[in-house]
């Protein structure tokens, strides 16, 4: 169930930059709460079912902790609710505490979604297309590392089978490991000669390289990136005009309901719920197709 994840990496990156960017800069409770809800719903779909209870057990206490901590330490605001150890606990600080908790959990939710969706290969691909050499280098590095580790293991086991390991303590063991490490390095250098031969044999350096990837930018990706950018622009316009500004201190301000502000709220809401809607649509479509089979 990863309908959203199947978009082109560029689309995904744009989306996440947009949503997390707005989330960070818009200090407006309506927008933060919508973003949090969107994030939670999306996250729920991405998670494995059995991980959900454990996550709830982590996020709910964290939410409460952040929410309670702020009024205990911050005494700004003009409406005291009660006094604790001679310090006022104010309404403003309490509300702001909840707001902070929403922010923290929201950011965590979206980051979680980001790491689920933007897997290493997608990230690599994006950066690779900016610097083509880098993507090949990284790909070769990712090829080399496991090979190196495997060889270390082979050599270590081979030496154990001849009893060529020390039992005389720490320094000797370090020396032995160093020896193995050096020998695997020279093995790898030897190997690198053959690798470079294999590269030359396959025309490396003969022409200007293209960078092939399995990702394709389709019409669907175009539409999605357009929608994302449009919603982003509408929201940012609202924010820039000051319509969505909101103040907690010294007294909780009033929520603006001007047309500009409402436009910003609703576009941001659509943006925040977009992945959830796409996932659900994907799931429903899937079920519909199955039922027709």
């Amino acid at each position: 169930m990863k309908a959203f994840g199947s978009f082109h990496p560029a689309v995904l990156l744009t989306y996440f930059v947009a949503i997390i960017g707005i989330f960070m800069f818009a200090s407006n409770p309506v927008m933060r709460v919508t973003a949090l809800l969107g994030g939670i719903l999306f996250c729920l779909l991405l998670q494995k079912k059995r991980e959900i209870p454990g996550n709830l057990g982590f996020y709910i206490p964290l939410f409460l902790l952040v929410a309670v901590t702020n009024p205990l330490f911050s005494h700004a605001g003009v409406t005291p609710l009660f006094f604790l150890n001679g310090n006022p606990v104010t309404l403003e600080a309490s509300v702001y505490g909840v707001f902070l908790a929403v922010t923290v959990i929201g950011v965590m939710m979206w980051c979680k979604c980001y790491s689920e969706i933007m897997t290493g290969d997608k990230f690599l691909y994006l950066f690779g297309s900016i610097v083509p050499k880098l993507s090949l280098t990284l790909s070769m590095a990712f090829r080399f590392l496991p090979l190196f580790v495997r060889r270390m293991k082979t050599v270590t086991t081979a030496r154990r089978g001849l009893g060529l390991y020390s039992q005389r303590g720490f320094v000797d063991r370090i020396k032995g490991t160093g020896q193995v490490f050096l020998s695997v390095i020279s093995w790898s250098l030897e190997n690198a000669m053959e690798t470079s031969m294999s590269m030359r044999a396959r025309a490396y350096g003969k022409a200007k390289r293209t960078s092939f990837s399995l990702f394709r930018f389709t019409m669907r990706d175009g539409v999605m990136i357009f929608v994302t950018l449009l919603l982003f622009a509408l929201t940012v316009t609202g924010m820039a005009s000051g319509a969505t500004d909101f103040f907690f201190y010294p007294r909780i301000g009033e929520l603006s309901l001007s047309p500009l502000a409402v436009t910003a709220y609703s576009s941001f809401a659509i943006l925040a719920f977009l992945p959830f809607v796409i996932e659900v649509r994907g799931a429903l479509l899937w079920r519909y197709y199955i039922s027709r089979i």
């Binding site: 090829r143 190997n191 690798t195």
Partner: peptide, 18 residues
């Protein structure tokens, strides 16, 4: 030692990219 890249598809494409 002849394999240059980390994934099968990339390895198949390597020469053609070159």
């Amino acid at each position: 030692s002849q394999i240059v890249t980390d994934t099968v598809w990339h390895e198949l494409a390597f020469g053609l990219e070159n």
